[in-house]
Amino acid sequence: MPTTKTKVTVINTGCANIASVKFAFERLGAAVTVSDDVQKISLADHVILPGVGAAPAAMKSIQGKQLIDCIQHLTQPVLGVCLGMQLMVSNSEESDLGSSNNTPCLNLMPGKVERMQVGDLRLPHMGWNQISIVEQNPLFKGISNGSYFYFVHSYAVSKYEHTLASCDYGKPFSAAIHRNNFFGVQFHPERSSDAGAQLLENFLLI
């Protein structure tokens, strides 16, 4: 557990389910603020880009709150969770039902979010699945290869140069991505029991 009370700001994207991430950090003893204020986000020790919802609605909300520029210029550790991770790359195939337009994302690192191709398997990919650590990183300190995390998604970023950990469902995809100060996880660490708590604690120590 971090010795001093780390200040975490969860970006209020205007979408749902911000509470579970907030509670998870509070369980670790962090001081958590939920905000859509540019000042507050910029001054936080650690920033969370949370994650339930659909990419078009989320990007529309972030744009409406004029947060794109702010997020792109953050220099402290930023963790994107689930949809939040997907928003970190260049663009997403996810669109409103019946539309086929790509959704431009935050472009914090290259990458494209695509509908998962899983053959006979079911979508969404929902439930507990195992990760393989691709690149050693403090984010996964103390977390063993093959640990189970909770996933809920139908879109994913393929395994590529920014992949920290992968997961296999139909084919390998990015379970975690990283570039500079930006980290993203496709799974929900706040809902991934002990392994998830370990990852969040690791993030606070970065």
Binding site: C15, A16, N17, S20, V52, G53, A54, A57, L83, D96, L97, P124, M126, V152, H153, S154, H188, R191
Partner: peptide
């Protein structure tokens, strides 16, 4: 993490699509 609808979906099937478009299929 998820919400489940039963009788209201039967009364108003459009609700399923509205939820899909707002919060994503996963919930």
């Amino acid at each position: 993490d998820k919400i489940s609808i039963n009788s209201p979906a039967l009364a108003n099937p459009e609700l399923i699509t509205a939820l899909y478009n707002t919060y994503g299929q996963q919930c």
